[in-house]
Design a binder for these strands. Structure first.
Lengths: 262, 262
DNA sequence: AGCGATTGTCTCTTACAAGAGACGCATGTA
DNA sequence: TACATGCGTCTCTTGTAAGAGACAATCGCT
């Protein structure tokens, strides 16, 4: 029992309550490292996941011993370990969609010269699972594993196709509806977009995440009606109607090969 | 830490004692899935890691919720999840050696037509971290993540360079010294090999893991004297001296680019 | 040298997670 | 129809791991 016997006044939003389960702590640690994208000291890590220092040391040691984490070169920093890489490759091997999807995306970006991405829903967020940069001098690139609010993207509108309104609401927070430039989307508009995208079988958004790009996305089905992933192209916002149309054609073609009963 | 069930065959013995910590159970689950290389039912999983069924259900649910595992298509099987893939890609991104090593290996196998591999030490075992198949009609292929006793391989002799005798002994079990065909290596011979390999800067083994192949390996240094990985080529055992020599030259060249202060 | 901040280890308590086992529900098969 | 087997969920107990906190060692700064 800590200081707060009378009132836990200064409870500045205890993100993590007392006596958290070790496994949960570990999951937070992994997510935190995924966010920071770099090796980090154990003390800072403890702060970052809001866990006691002693606990963090114990857990990190377990994880390092197991190979899920590795001590970084200088000695007291940790980051992901080889074993996670091996497990990740196992995932790719066991997952036809991802394996073939990666190839299709790579091919598509070579074929079109545009940045191409494979996207999936990951714990309620839009996630870039694989991306292949285009050949433009100023390439629009984004990292694998990047997670973005669903309403900001064309893919997001496709990934939510077929969900009930309540489900969509549960997945989209208020913050998600605020675009990077400060504009705020209306939830109803977003849900309308989803319905439209479902019917047309593709989705195009212009200047949503930034003012210079347009996003073309098509669904990949794992079963009739079930959208498992999307393929998308990120192109300059001034791309002509004709070219946009033909790119969407290409996308649909490629995505069709990946789909199982569209 | 018993590295456990290499041969869990008749080992009825309680691999896992009573009241094991949840995190350890999770680590066993992940390793078990890595071994089986396929989705598996939760009941079988519990048997496989020798854990109580109720506990296994609880842990699996946590892991599935977190995205580290995913329910496989048919509904009651689990396997690795997207998040492990994302973490794995983070590892690659943060690890120059691996990222560039993969490229070098791919290039090498295209250039030579032989199977090429990048190998590292992983929890005391030789691990194929990336492999690129050759172009021979009967290709010699091996899976990423495969773990093999150190004495069976040319790379193993390089990876242990510079270790004390005691350290080597600790890493190599009696079983490891028995080759697939039943022959038994003497530990002293193995240690001699390590010393020789260290001096010559490469290692060639013939007919160790099987009777048809020869293994050529060179070290990749992360610091002067510190062998971080090896690159190797798996070639037919009847490859001529000349070709072997020139392949080793190529290997050294490529490995040199990866090394930091050799 | 003095001071504060950080790092890694250790001890002790108690809140709580691991586990045993029962339950209902699907299967399959004699 | 009975019986066996496997699945998923639930309850209750108790062994134990999470956490607070003390400690020495180290670093950086004045």
């Amino acid at each position: 029992m800590q200081d707060g016997n009378a009132l836990a006044v200064s409870a500045d939003e205890k993100t993590t309550a007392s006596r958290e389960k070790g496994l949960n702590r570990v999951l937070e640690i992994l997510d935190f490292l995924h966010q920071t994208q770099r090796a980090i000291g154990i003390g800072d890590l403890a702060k970052g996941v809001n866990a006691p220092r002693s606990t963090t040391y114990t857990l990190v040691r377990s994880l390092v011993d197991a190979g899920l984490l590795e001590m970084a070169g200088d000695g007291n920093r940790v980051y992901f370990g080889k074993k996670l890489y091996l497990y990740g490759m196992d995932y790719v091997r066991g997952n036809d969609l991802l394996r073939r999807g990666r190839q299709e995306v790579d091919h598509l970006s070579r074929e079109t010269g545009e940045t191409s991405e494979l996207c999936m829903l990951q714990s309620g967020r839009y996630t870039i699972v694989h991306s292949s940069p285009g050949t433009r001098p100023f390439r629009i690139s984004s990292a694998t594993g990047l997670q973005i609010p669903l309403p900001w993207t064309a893919s997001g509108r496709l990934l939510l196709a077929g969900l009930e309104r309540a489900e969509v609401e549960a997945m989209v927070s208020e913050d998600d509806l605020v675009l990077p430039d400060g504009r705020k989307l209306r939830l109803d508009d977003f849900i309308d977009d989803i319905a439209k995208a479902r019917v047309t079988g593709y989705c195009v958004t212009s200047g949503l995440v930034d003012a210079y790009t347009k996003c073309l996305a098509v669904p990949v089905f794992s079963a009739p009606g079930k959208v498992e992933a999307t393929m998308c192209l990120v192109v300059p916002i001034d791309t002509s109607e004709e070219r946009t149309g033909s790119l969407i054609g290409l996308l649909r073609d490629r995505a069709g090969r990946l789909s199982i009963g569209g």
